[in-house]
């Protein structure tokens, strides 16, 4: 059974359709890159899969649970990195993570240990007790990835995680995604950078005006080919 499954998934804002009858199956352990121009519906799809946004029509099943009826069970399995960092500026990094631990009902001691390890991995260990408002955009982005990984989710939904990161941040993030892949997490990453998609993903999807126009294993394509296909499809 696929881990993430949608059937005829539809979303419209008023009469403007954003996602059009999308049927998608993602198996456990896949790392899927979701490419598409701005406004193609990438973010909307991720928000629907994360239960933040309700579908207008169709079915979403994640891990055998169905949205929105069993949303709570699904939410516990999902880690999300969105456009905005989703952090509290007046709290320190450690306090933010402590709060998220409580929201996910994690054991406080184990949560603290895990938070420290993750902060070390993203190079924020020394800033753990500084207020988040003093962090740069890139540091906030790294911290929000720690937040998404904190409750050890099966599924990672990443919405353009590379935006705002410097060279070192991008490398750190790519390492983290590789590591998450190696740990067997299922990853769905929206991006518009072909290089990252080709480097990280096992499978590539291209979304165009709410419909899937390409679905191929990443091994078939390198980033140059991908860019060519993308240009061709979008202009067509």
């Amino acid at each position: 059974m696929p881990l993430i499954e949608t059937e005829d998934l539809t979303k419209s804002f008023g009469y403007v359709p954003v996602i059009k009858r999308l049927t998608l199956k993602i198996e456990r352990g896949e790392c899927v890159a979701l490419l598409g121009a701005n406004g193609s519906g990438k973010s909307t799809l991720l928000r629907m899969l994360s239960s933040l946004s309700k579908a207008t029509g169709g079915v979403i099943r994640i891990g055998g649970w169905e949205l929105p009826r069993e949303a709570t069970s699904i939410r516990a399995q999902i880690g999300m990195v969105a456009h905005k960092p989703l952090l509290y500026e007046n709290l320190t990094a450690a306090e933010n993570l402590q709060f998220f631990g409580r929201l996910y009902h994690l054991d406080p001691v184990k949560n603290k240990i895990r938070a420290d390890i993750l902060l070390e991995q993203v190079g924020l260990a020394r800033r753990a007790n500084d207020l988040v408002r003093t962090f740069s955009r890139g540091m906030q982005q790294r911290l929000s990835i720690v937040r998404a990984l904190l409750h050890d989710p099966d599924i990672l939904l990443l919405d353009e995680p590379h935006t705002g990161l410097d060279q070192r941040g991008v490398m750190l993030l790519n390492e983290l995604i590789m590591a998450a892949r190696a740990e067997g997490r299922t990853i769905l990453m929206a991006t518009h950078e072909f290089n990252h998609a080709a480097l990280l993903a096992t499978r590539i999807l291209i979304l165009e005006r709410g419909s899937m126009i390409l679905d191929r294993p990443a091994a078939d394509l390198d980033s140059a080919q991908l860019a060519a296909i993308f240009a061709e499809q979008v202009s067509a």
Partner: peptide, 14 residues
């Protein structure tokens, strides 16, 4: 402003 309501909505709580 921080989009933080999403954080609360993403968590498995009533």
């Amino acid at each position: 402003d921080q989009g933080n309501l999403d954080v609360l909505l993403l968590a498995p709580l009533p």
